[in-house]
Design a protein around this nucleic acid. Structure first.
Lengths: 343, 343
DNA sequence: ATGATAAATGTAAGCGCTTGCAAACAGCAT
DNA sequence: ATGCTGTTTGCAAGCGCTTACATTTATCAT
């Protein structure tokens, strides 16, 4: 079987030079209509598709942006990415996804790999990472955007929400319902500014009302069901028992609900439970889970736009020198059945 | 800022030729230890990373395999991909993920794009697609593997399970519990052999016992909660009412459960519900969802291995001419609370 | 020591594409 | 016709890397 057709094959078939074929492919309006049609016919005839490597080498662009997320298994990232991809696809850009498993070293390695593959831009989750990584990013002069996080004075462009404020807001709603004995099933804070900010948010809300969140009332665990159950079980054993379990995300909250029941208690009559993210299961649980809605899809879409604006200096409005604006998205507390008044 | 270092920069710094540097990077054992160290030092010093495009162009390999899945939002694909990626990463291969949104035309387009990017291999979901796509695949001589599907006489290498048999098996369990009035909330069968096989499986089980699955007792809908609720609502309005809703996957089943309750009925006392996939929510629902466990992670891992074996002819045992074996994975019916005896 | 053999390294020819520059051409006022 | 401008096209030089082949250097039995 003959091998893949090249630009030259097409050029020969159409009776033009390779330069013209290249122009037909990349900048059709620079070619006379008649010539263009002849070339397009040859392209179709031969089934020509440009060779990615050749193009990348010659133009030093790849039409690719990379994203490093902690895991694909969490629906929130999947949803955000899906939206991002839709937006990028529309601009003819491909999304390259890598996972870090919530591990900073793995993340750094994945970033390296993506840079090696010549991504034109990068999407990263959260802000906490080794300064060396940021240096690397700057050295490669690759535009990047941080998502799932937002902070007023962050030195980097972010498209996300204020985890601290959202958690504080949620804790206030909890406090409003009379809860005083509060415990937290938190995510692992190591290398994770979001998990850490959520704890700080809850603590701030409590301190504003003269309460303290004891270190023993906070357990960190992986964002999975079983660890969530385990952590909640431990917290429920405290005397006096907490009246509410504030959880780092919905998955942990689902685990916490199970633990409450396993302890022979009811949600929310005996113990209230709250989540964070508003993934699909939040509404499916019985009782439905009180949580914080995060606009994942919108976040993905806006992150994509932010990056696209900086990718193509021509299309990107001004000369690209201006700092692209960070974007703060609003979250919304959803009061649902799993949060009741303090017993 | 100086631009990215090239092979030549490293060669100059280490006082060797570019060929030697290339060997250090790709086949270290072909280089004398002393020389290798000198080169490695230069690499580290300059922060050299090979240019992907250059490498792809010269070697005609990319160290990349592509996967086209219907959507990232369904946890089953996410989980399978995650496992696949782990396996590929270990072999130094990168996974490129694209989504088709359950649309055959989009899928074909994504395949084209991936081929254009020079993927060395391809993972595709299911078997149903235009023959032209298979022709394209053969013309590019790119090895591919089909997952989430398995059929004894498929002409293509598959790593998956027998959707027909699994659904028939499930239906038999349902029939064993005395159900006779059976309705199905199925996935959309257009371009989707898995959804179609599951319906056929249920129908076969019924016919084996002299029952018929009326066309009106089957509703196809998108694999999302709301359409599932809607479809179930319609089916529950039938007179006489079905005693069980067999659903195309767990998401639809979750919707069906809600619809049953919304109709003022109980699961499973009034209407039983079954799912398919055994995603996380299956166990979290109240009552827990009877479903078919699919070894998604294992499937991803085995698919990766299958592809890897054909990627590198050197490592792949024989001369690569032999047809790589398809692999059939076992599924398991999980009896859980949502399936009760017929009322 | 000496040649035969094997290992290490260098030379240089591309891989397929983009793009600055120059040549060819078309359109148009003079 | 003539020169002018602006558009369309071709020429050819790389982009950074791999690899067949040639050359140099090390190894070793004799």
């Amino acid at each position: 079987m003959r091998s893949r057709p090249t630009l030259e094959d097409v050029a020969r078939a159409a009776g033009v030079s390779t330069a013209t074929v290249s122009r037909v492919v990349n900048t059709p309006d620079r070619v006379r209509a008649e010539t263009r049609q002849r070339v397009e016919a040859a392209v179709a005839e031969l089934g020509y598709a440009p060779h990615f490597g050749g193009r990348a080498l010659a133009s030093n662009r790849t039409g690719t942006v990379g994203a490093v997320i902690p895991t694909m298994e969490n629906a929130i990232f999947a949803r955000g990415l899906q939206a991002m991809q839709e937006e990028l696809d529309a601009a003819g850009v491909t999304l390259l996804v890598a996972t870090s498993d919530y591990d900073a070293a793995k993340e750094a390695h994945q970033i390296q790999t993506l840079l090696g593959r010549g991504v034109d831009g990068l999407v990263l989750i959260g802000e906490a990472r080794d300064p060396a990584v940021y240096e690397l990013l700057e050295r490669f002069e690759v535009p990047f955007v941080l998502v799932w996080t937002w902070r007023a004075d962050s030195p980097w462009p972010c498209v996300g929400f204020d985890n601290f404020a959202a958690a504080r807001d949620l804790a206030e709603r909890v406090l409003d319902r009379g809860h005083r004995r509060i415990a937290m099933v938190a995510g692992v804070t190591r290398d994770n500014d979001r998990a850490e900010a959520r704890i700080r948010g809850v603590r701030a809300a409590m301190e504003a009302r003269g309460l303290a969140l004891a270190p023993s009332a906070v357990v960190e665990c992986d964002y999975r069901i079983e660890p969530g159950i385990e952590a909640a079980r431990g917290l429920l054993a405290a005397v006096p028992r907490p009246t509410v379990l504030i959880c780092g995300n919905d998955v942990l909250a689902a685990g916490a609900c199970r633990a409450v029941r396993a302890a022979g208690l009811r949600v929310p009559e005996d113990v209230s439970v709250t989540g964070f993210d508003n993934i699909e299961i939040a509404e499916l649980l019985e009782p439905p889970l009180a949580t914080v809605h995060v606009p994942h899809r919108r976040m993905g879409r806006m992150a994509a736009r932010n990056l696209l604006a900086r990718l193509d200096p021509a299309a990107g409005g001004a000369c690209g020198a201006e700092r692209p604006a960070s974007l703060r998205l609003e979250t919304e507390f959803l009061a649902r059945g799993s949060l009741g008044p303090a017993p």
